[in-house]
Design a binder for these strands. Structure first.
Length: 587
DNA sequence: GCCGTTTTCGGCCCGACTGTTTTCAGTCG
């Protein structure tokens, strides 16, 4: 049983305790415990074995005993007993906005509602209005919430959020009463999947109403969910919600920090403030009645004797402690990227010619660019046969003459076959400057076989990069199952880099795993997996993931100059010319 | 249920908005 499953069970327990009306601090203890387990750096099973689980912050005697039982036997008596008290369908009700444990408890106890369908029916029968704490409006909102649940999944890729954000930024820039504007929330932290878009604007108090109305007039707004003096929530035509907070200019830095979160990060920061005898909320840090002035978010951290913690790091993953110790890493930045390896051309399923890709790379100021099309087994993506490779390599060699300002590399994204081998014979493999090994099919393989398959690919001496490690597609497909510990060890031993695939649907390697790679000294590549020129822009998302994962420039292979790359991979472009004058078909 | 350089008992982060109330509870972030 992995950490995520254990954490989920603890969360469920917390929810059930709420339904029972238990002590709120006991509930919080289970929620905190769930987070501690999920964020655990160490191996959970080993902690249980060595009886050190109780030493983990947030895990005391009670939780430690329960989790130990769960790990050892696969079951937890306490959890089972609680579960028997409630029908499992009841938990669907929490997906309806505005329904929390207290209201769900009433619905369950008074109306015997156990499912979303029953709830919808009860609303249509007008049966909620008589309940204490409910009214006509609540009933209508619940009905609307159920409607929306059917219509929207309620989760969006970070790329959707960024698209919305850019439009909103333009929109707010046209309004001169907006003194400052920023994104906030999970989008600013560059989470891979977001629930809504949080934005923040500084305006004079007298302009609040006008700005709220201006926001509501944003063309994509389809429904106003809530409108108060400082907070307005809307739903856009895309289904995604946007929350706007209006603050004064002097509150802005504090509000920006507060609404950027994460919740866990904020809680810890506020505790720090409290220890220093200060009170902290979204409007400031107060010494008695007086707000300590701050112009920027960095000033806010300064009040607490902390360096500026980049938003991406604010997940309570040790960033505050690192800040206190002066050990925050210098995170990789967009301008650090010197070249790219994972680009598809029209030889396989990309839409651009190799020369167009090269021109784009030159224009963007890259030192090197690698072409890596699909390999022969990927027939669905028009994978390259050996004769296609010959042709592509000759084209690359002629382009090398034409564009001396950039190094053009011959790469390939080789499918990892079922048995872990790469997709060409050795005499073909040796013609490439580098090989990205990626899984594309048979992702549902059994864990042990999948582990062997990945290890086989990594141990192949021609493999330089492991592409989109798990094969996951965000919001639609789980990644494959394998023994992460083993695979990371083999990556480390064989000096194979692991890719952060920057396509917003993938963002694989996950940021939560980056720190592990970092600690083990495994190198990272940040690559767009571009199939058209605009796909180059996806690198921004990959940078976000890398930064969330504490990655520095020195750990990123394509953060290195070409000369360093030559050392790292022993690249020698002169050695790999294809046979001249060979007869190949033109397509 | 967790935690401890003012503590092994007595705390546990904070505020806005909404809807239902008539001063507040519940939800959300």
């Amino acid at each position: 049983m992995d950490k995520k499953e254990v954490a989920k069970i603890l969360e469920e327990i917390a929810l059930m305790l709420e339904l029972k009306g238990e002590n709120t601090f006991k509930i919080r203890a289970y929620q905190n415990g769930a987070r501690s387990i999920e964020n655990l750096e160490q191996n959970l099973e080993e902690l249980v074995k060595s009886r050190e689980l109780g030493k983990v912050p947030g895990i005391g005697k009670g939780l430690s005993e329960n989790v130990t039982e769960l790990i050892n036997t696969g079951e937890m008596t306490y959890y089972q007993e609680l579960k028997e008290e409630f029908p499992q369908t009841l938990f669907d009700l929490f997906k309806v906005p505005g329904l929390g444990p207290k209201k769900v408890k009433v619905l369950y106890e008074k109306l015997e509602i156990e499912t979303l369908g029953e709830l919808e029916y009860a609303c249509l029968e007008n049966r909620l209005t008589d309940l204490k704490g409910f009214g006509k409006t609540t009933q209508e909102k619940i009905l609307q919430g159920i409607e929306n649940l059917k219509k929207y999944r309620g989760k969006y890729l970070v790329s959707t959020g960024i698209m919305v954000l850019e439009e909103l930024r333009d929109y707010f820039q046209q309004e001169e009463r907006v003194l400052r504007f920023s994104e906030a929330g999970s989008l600013r932290r560059r989470k891979e999947v977001i629930k809504d878009v949080d934005i923040l604007a500084a305006v004079k108090e007298t302009d609040r109403k006008a700005l709220g109305d201006y926001f509501i007039a944003f063309p994509r707004v389809e429904e106003v969910i809530a409108q108060g003096a400082t907070k307005i929530s809307v739903r856009l035509d895309l289904g995604i919600n946007v929350d706007l907070r209006l603050v004064t200019e002097s509150e802005f830095p504090y509000a920006l920090h507060h609404f950027t979160g994460s919740k866990a990060h904020n809680t810890k920061i506020r505790q720090m403030a409290k220890k220093k005898g200060l009170k902290m909320n979204e409007y400031g840090i107060f010494d008695g009645e007086e707000r300590i002035p701050a112009k920027t978010e960095a000033d806010v951290f300064k009040v607490l004797d902390l360096p500026m913690i980049p938003p991406e790091l604010r997940e309570d993953q040790g960033e505050i402690e690192a800040g206190e110790a002066g050990e925050l890493p210098p995170l990789v930045e967009k301008q650090d990227i010197k070249g790219l390896f994972h680009i598809h051309s029209h030889y396989s399923d990309g839409i651009n010619a190799v020369e167009e890709i090269v021109q784009e790379a030159v224009e963007r100021g890259f030192q090197y660019i690698g072409i890596s099309d699909h390999s022969q087994t990927a027939y669905y993506a028009n994978g390259l046969k050996p004769k296609d490779i010959e042709r592509q390599h000759r084209e690359i060699e002629s382009l090398r003459g034409k564009y001396p300002e950039i190094k053009i590399l011959k790469g390939i994204e080789s499918d990892i076959l079922k048995d872990g081998s790469l997709d060409y014979e050795e005499e073909v493999l040796e013609k490439f400057d580098y090989i990205i090994a990626s899984l594309h099919s048979n992702l549902k393989m059994d864990r042990d076989l999948m582990t062997k398959r990945l290890i086989g690919a990594i141990e192949n001496p021609y493999t330089k990069i492991l592409g989109h490690m798990t094969g996951r597609l965000l919001l639609s497909r789980e990644g494959c199952d394998f023994d992460e510990e083993q695979v990371f060890k083999v990556l480390q031993k064989n000096k194979v880099a692991v890719e952060i695939n920057s396509n917003p649907h993938r963002l694989d390697l996950d940021w939560r795993k980056c720190k592990k790679a970092k600690t083990m000294g495994i190198s990272i590549t940040i690559d767009p997996d571009a199939h058209k020129l605009s796909g180059f822009d996806h690198v921004d998302y990959g940078i976000g993931v890398a930064r969330k994962g504490w990655i520095e420039r020195k750990e990123v292979i394509n953060g290195q100059s070409f000369s360093d790359l030559k050392v790292f991979w022993g690249l020698n472009l002169e050695d790999k010319k294809s046979e001249q004058g060979e007869n190949t078909k033109q397509s």
